[in-house]
């Protein structure tokens, strides 16, 4: 737990800094608006956490998010009655993509960096092959509600985020969590002590795929159909997880800290925007912060450079 504390400190500082410039942030509506905006990335980070802590990468989540939104729009095509069946289908799609990623990585022994890089190319190519180059169809109001609407004062996406967060914590406390961390920490030792490492990793990829499906549903709901909704999200999710102190290569870090990392990243974007460091130098600041955060965490740990890939 020692490693997870710094991220909460950083997050708190950033939140205070935002509140100083923008007092509206302290009101429930302002804060909930921030969490709502961050929800898709936080959920993606939770999914990515499972994969990273087991010693792998998932680069396919960004294009999977795009696929989910584009598929939803084409299948629903504005028809309210199709909302729920398509929602179910989207979750199954996320699950299947995760399953393939996991199976190729473990059973065919392809490094996950390559598996998911290939999956990224395949997904983004296939979906536009199917729709003829640009999204078509439209999302239903019922579908949009998850990313856009709210239950009383609380946005649906915040509630979904809470549910995902609780589920993730419970999973990590269960046997599965220990198995996963053990797999990422030392595969051989885990295997010798009876852990089914392949199964644990496949499940991690499935969870990441599911998280991408949920994030896609929220993002499509929030802003509607777009061909580039998922662009770059894979790197943001990995960055968020790493900011949360989770070690690439596996075996260390908590899921709560990974999700806090995503919130921190979102808070950082908001803050840079508020202070007018928009556009250009925003990326430079982001780059420095990422390296600094990881360096600060890593210097206290034994060097584990090459456990990854």
């Amino acid at each position: 737990m020692r490693r997870t504390l710094p991220i909460f400190g950083v997050l708190a500082v950033l939140l205070v800094a935002i509140a100083v410039v923008n007092p509206f942030f302290l009101e429930p509506a302002g804060f909930l608006g921030f969490v709502k905006r961050a929800a898709p990335l936080v959920i993606l980070a939770a999914g990515q956490y499972f994969v990273i802590v087991s010693g792998e990468f998932d680069l396919s989540v960004g294009s999977l998010v795009t696929v989910e939104v584009v598929v939803a729009a084409r299948l629903i095509d504005g028809d309210e009655s199709l909302t729920w069946p398509v929602l179910g289908l989207l979750l199954v799609l996320g699950l299947l993509v995760g399953l393939v990623n996991g199976a190729v990585t473990t059973l065919l022994r392809v490094p996950s960096f390559i598996t998911t890089l290939g999956m990224m190319l395949i997904l983004s190519g296939a979906v536009f092959l199917w729709t003829g180059g640009a999204p078509r169809g439209a999302l239903s109001q019922g579908f949009r509600a998850f990313g856009r609407g709210s239950l009383g004062p609380i946005p649906w996406s915040v509630l979904i985020l809470l549910a995902v967060g609780v589920a993730a914590v419970l999973l990590m406390r269960a046997d599965f969590g220990r198995t996963l961390v053990a797999t990422g920490d030392n595969e051989r030792a885990a295997a010798l002590s009876g852990v089914r490492v392949d199964r644990a990793r496949i499940l991690a990829f499935v969870l990441s795929g599911l998280a991408a499906a949920v994030a896609g549903i929220l993002l499509g709901g929030f802003a509607g159909v777009s061909a580039q909704v998922g662009q770059g999200l894979e790197f943001q999710a990995i960055t968020a997880v790493v900011l949360g102190g989770v070690v690439l290569g596996g075996g260390r870090g908590s899921v709560v800290a990974a999700m806090a990392g995503a919130l921190t990243l979102e808070a950082l974007f908001t803050l840079l925007n508020l202070y007018g460091i928009s556009g250009a130098l925003e990326f430079t600041v982001q780059g420095v912060i990422i390296i600094a955060a990881v360096a600060a965490g890593a210097l206290r740990l034994p060097f584990r450079l090459r456990a990854s890939t």
Partner: peptide, 21 residues
């Protein structure tokens, strides 16, 4: 004057921020 990268979610967020501010 803000840049949206042509991203719908980012556009919506920027406009919401300005409405707030």
């Amino acid at each position: 004057v803000e840049f949206t990268d042509g991203d719908a979610a980012k556009t919506k967020s920027i406009v919401s921020d300005y409405i707030q501010r």
